Amino acid sequence: MKVLEIRGVKKKLGKKEIIKGIDLSVSEGEIFGFLGPNGAGKTTTIRMLVGLIAPNEGDISICGYNVEKEKEKALKNVGAVVENPELYNYLSGRENLMQIARIRGVSKEEIQNLIEIVGLKDRINDKVKKYSLGMKQRLGLAAALIGDPKLLILDEPTNGLDPSGIMDFREVVKKSAKEKGMAVFISSHILSEVQTLCDRVAFIDKGVIKSVEEIHDNVVKTELESLTLMVSKDKNKALEMLRSLEWIQKAVINEEEIHLIVKTGSTNNILRHLIEKDIEVEEIFKNRKGLEQRYMELVEGGVR
């Protein structure tokens, strides 16, 4: 089941077009990453998802309900931590959660369970004004999980968390997605965390989705991969030949190395052509296959 569907969404702020027509969907039980540089349109997209602003064109649906036309029904299925969690600093952590629990008709037992899940049981009765940023993030996550929402939206959720908190957060999100069938939409600058956590990831830049790709066993499945090649001599000859091959998208010399962006699975063909042209290969290896390399390819324009 598609929990979240974004179709043809565009958004202007003033005269500037921030989102230029994006299409996305997130399924039940899926953890979906949303990556891009500052100013790419991530926060604007998330603000539209939670109904804070409306798109100029296109539709956003949550569990089949249009966010703009059926806001109450759509957002009833959503839990969110957008930017800094909205909390009452003069109340305790428990009192903050109980305010939401009363609105959503959730029992004290469920609230206590969430408190233990996010690791706040020793400080839950303290005033929120005494909380660290990481503790506020934990409390915000607990608040977002009240009532088992169908869609959990998280904007920089590990901000302020120490390594232990990040690991705890990861387990809570994975458990919510896999055991409860919750769809998770997460925007983060920590690429390694997204790679560890997510099933799919979208790369957005300048308001346009550059690519949506799957992650398996912490490796991004891509149509392109990055290689580093070292030849004994005639680097310029090798570069000229490489640029003529159909499998090569980009080839540049960086000091003693040739850096390549190539079609996945084409390494053997490239080596064969080098040998046929009597170019001696000293070394060839694949570079990182993780999000960092893919991010550079899609958002930064290729290898540096």
Rank of each mutant, 00 (worst) to 15 (best):
L24V: 10
R94Q: 09
L120V: 10
N254G: 06
L133E: 09
G33W: 03
T44N: 03
N84H: 12
L49K: 01
Q137G: 05
S232H: 08
I275E: 12
I270N: 02
E110C: 07
E57A: 12
E17N: 03
S188R: 02
H259F: 13
H259S: 12
E255R: 14
M167P: 01
L197T: 02
G302V: 10
L141G: 00
N254R: 15
K73M: 12
E193K: 04
V219P: 04
L35V: 09
K76T: 05
K221D: 11
M48V: 08
D168H: 10
A74V: 09
Y295Q: 04
K237C: 05
P55Y: 09
M241W: 08
G36H: 03
V220E: 06
S27C: 11
K11P: 01
I111V: 15
E109L: 07
Q112H: 11
Q249E: 14
N254Y: 13
V299I: 15
P149E: 03
V219E: 13
G147P: 00
L52Q: 13
E255D: 15
S232V: 13
K233F: 07
K277W: 01
L13D: 05
G265A: 12
N218E: 14
I46S: 00
P55E: 08
A144S: 14
Q249A: 04
M230H: 13
R170P: 01
S132C: 06
Q195C: 03
F34G: 00
I204G: 00
N38S: 11
A101Y: 06
V231G: 06
P157N: 12
G79K: 00
L154G: 05
G64M: 11
V106A: 04
D122T: 14
K289E: 14
E57D: 12
D148F: 12
S244N: 13
K130P: 09
V201H: 02
V82P: 01
G119P: 03
N56I: 10
R123A: 15
S92D: 08
I117R: 15
R200C: 04
G290S: 04
S176L: 05
E246Y: 11
Q99M: 15
R243S: 08
E240A: 14
L227W: 12
A183Q: 04
K178L: 14
T267A: 11
L242C: 00
S266M: 06
S266V: 05
I204F: 02
F203S: 05
E300A: 10
I100C: 01
I117Q: 15
G58T: 08
K289Q: 14
L13T: 06
L291R: 05
E282W: 09
L197S: 01
L49F: 03
